[in-house]
Design a binder for these strands. Structure first.
Lengths: 232, 232
DNA sequence: ACTGAGCCCCTAACACCGTTAGGGGCGGGT
DNA sequence: ACCCGCCCCTAACGGTGTTAGGGGCTCAGT
């Protein structure tokens, strides 16, 4: 087993055609095509022109492959421009992170329950911490803030991407489903769920961006209260 | 297929021994014993003394069984006492929700990517909305707030429960792993990740409760800013 | 009492999954 | 020439979700 991936090639002059890197890229393509549920060792192997068992030379587990895939997804993340106050920069982090999770199919599910910070994630995190400290947050508050933001964005995208009903899973149009769900809210027994009936329209706001914006701004408001007033 | 579960028993006087309810309870026991990865149709069937194919009489899919399981978990949730200001009540919701996710094995993963609000979830949601409106939040803000809180708590628990390393998955003690991860942070190249090295201690705070408390209080601060000052 | 309908479980099978054991070719170092 | 480590292979094991089809069982209608 290659316990050190960056060791000298030892015997081969030509680098092996299969690398952990190329495996991650293949997994990314399979993910895009078939989704997380359809991502199997055999398909990833076929994607690189190899049989499934061969993957286990480069990777201990499917789990480890998913770690690689995870980092491959994060690799395409980019930090927001370093201009404006801390608030616009943190807002940028949240929106960029959410966009990343939307652009890669099932990305939120891949990251759910996976910490294993690959090198790309570490770079992002360090950068984010840097801006928070520069804005005047204490070390402890900066660290805690990164947890707050990433937890929220991940949870939010996971919720917004979950199909509202079995109908949506079979590709019914979003707006159809939303109005149908709204009607189901309205049809609930008023004596049991008066608020759900009354707020059916608010609860089924189809534009997720406005939801996301509200949530992010509340969190940023809460963070701002940590700073002395002259720092905003 | 029983397309209406609450229809009259029609032909049987004795109720069938297998109900969707008892299936959910069986699934809950299997989940507790074997975790989500070990929860299979065959095991749930065995738990109720039946073969796997029989489940498909009561349930369309494994997915539908998981929806039932989801609601069975939520059934044991209880709203916080209706006393104190809105702030202590919303705080109570967050902590109770997190506790629920901790008390049931893999509960966070079961709920991840699953909206399908069962009856119990609807009740909780209605109650939460009621308190928010009573506190003076507008209808729209109340609805948005429930999304903010549930998204955050779900994302947070998902992150805190993800094993920090492969070592932890094999039952190494938590504190061992934490200090080992901390050392790995400290050992990073300082020129690439100066902030991760400097904040290694803050980032690896082993007490998740203090992390959670920080995050919740920031969110509550942000929400408070929505209210006129005399409402707090 | 007989018949038919519907409920509810069964056996058998299909296609696929993750993972392991063991084998073999190939290329470079001694 | 030999060996050894790399890297892929075939074959198989036990498990998965799901479907097809069958069969008893209990009731309603006649």
């Amino acid at each position: 087993m290659p316990e050190n991936a960056s060791a000298t090639p030892a015997h081969h002059t030509t680098p092996p055609a299969l690398t952990r890197e190329s495996l991650a890229q293949a997994a990314l393509r399979v993910l895009e095509r078939d989704g997380l549920a359809g991502l199997s060792m055999r398909k990833v192997a076929a994607e690189v022109g190899v049989k499934a068992a061969s993957l286990y030379w480069h990777v201990r587990n499917k789990e480890e492959l998913l770690d690689l895939l995870n980092d491959a997804i994060i690799a395409s993340a980019e930090p927001p421009p370093r201009e404006g106050g801390w608030r616009v920069q943190m807002r940028g982090y949240c929106w960029n992170y959410r966009r990343l999770l939307h652009e890669n199919r099932d990305a939120a599910k891949v990251m759910a329950g996976r910490l294993a910070p690959g090198p790309h994630m570490l770079g992002l995190l360090d950068d984010q911490l840097d801006r928070l400290r520069e804005a005047g947050f204490s070390d402890a508050h900066a660290a805690l803030t990164t947890y707050l933001l990433s937890s929220f964005v991940q949870g939010f995208v996971l919720q917004e991407q979950s199909p509202l009903s079995a109908a949506e899973a079979e590709g019914a149009s979003r707006l159809e489903v939303v109005t149908e769900v709204r009607e189901r809210f309205r049809a609930l027994p008023v004596e049991d769920f008066p608020n759900l009936v009354a707020l059916a329209a608010d609860l089924t706001e189809p534009n997720h961006d406005v939801r996301f914006e509200f949530c992010v701004e509340r969190i940023l408001d809460g963070l701002a209260a940590l700073l002395p007033p002259d720092h905003r």
